[in-house]
Design a protein around this nucleic acid. Structure first.
Ligand SMILES: [Mn+2]
Ligand SMILES: [Mn+2]
Ligand SMILES: [Zn+2]
Ligand SMILES: [Zn+2]
Lengths: 144, 144
DNA sequence: CAACTTATCAACAATAATTGTTGATAGCAA
DNA sequence: TTGCTATCAACAATTATTGTTGATAAGTTG
């Protein structure tokens, strides 16, 4: 996502105002590679703005998505993940045990459905998910 | 998935019984490449067993998944899709407009995260989703 | 700075997919 | 046949997310 000053500009351009709640959520997302859920953003945001509601975090996150500042990932972990890394195309590794999501940079230029399949389907996006077990969960399994 | 007779055997081996409801759901899944939702299975099943409940369809589908006879796909379309094609590894094309899901057979052997990424993550499965617009939705858009 | 306009806040309720629970029933096993 | 136990299906609960709304507070204009 863009730096906070730029986002501020863009929000204003949309006719939206930069409230303290928005400021906090945006701050939490800057350089955040953890792919947080809305709920974890909410929990962290309340530390700074205790009165913030979950609804406001949803609103903010949806606004940011409309503006293209974040993408919302549905990776089958039960709830949406917020990804502020929209600059560098990438894919994901998802831990089946704990749901943690990590970035994976791979080349997908060779990935294409057969000509036959493409004839009836206009492909706009390719998404690769590596499913597996993260180091943490591997270690926990070892000691258990 | 296996032919109905084999599934029958395997159900019994699990201590499960082959009820009329299960029979209908299994029948609906045989050679079904539409990746139906549980709800669509339910709607079709009630035509044959009007008293069937949605819960029973969920139960049956979950039982079949535990037995490895189907896979349950969460593709971000709002509800789970049931895929009876477990014999041939394949991937999917998902229409962003209507949610229709089609099979796509591609080679993913070359798809690997960097050695660095794999060091901390034991990858067990690679999932490729082609997002786009199906022929039907393209045509509807044209005439609209 | 003051008045005005309007978006935002946050509480509350609604929605939708899925799972949990349970009394009655019905299908296997002896 | 008799009994045991899994299944049925109704009902309620759960969870993530969205809809609604009166009160508030932030921008804007003068
Ligand atoms: Mn990412
Ligand atoms: Mn399939
Ligand atoms: Zn993990
Ligand atoms: Zn479509």
């Amino acid at each position: 996502m863009n730096p906070t000053e730029v986002i501020t500009q863009r929000l204003r351009a949309q006719g939206l105002r930069l409230t303290p709640q928005k400021r906090v959520v945006i701050g939490l997302l800057q350089n955040n590679a953890t792919h947080p859920t809305v709920d974890s953003l909410y929990e962290n945001a309340r530390q700074e703005v205790p009165s913030i509601s979950r609804r406001t975090v949803y609103q903010t996150v949806n606004d940011l998505e409309s503006m293209g500042e974040v993408t919302l990932l549905d990776l089958g972990t039960g709830s949406v993940r917020v990804d502020p890394n929209v600059e560098h195309p990438h894919h994901h590794m998802i831990c089946s045990e704990c749901g943690v999501v990590r970035d994976a940079v791979i080349d997908v230029s060779a990935l294409t459905p057969s000509a036959r399949d493409r004839r009836d389907f206009d492909v706009t996006d390719v998404e690769v998910n590596f499913r597996g077990v993260c180091r943490n969960c591997q270690d926990n399994g070892k000691t258990a």
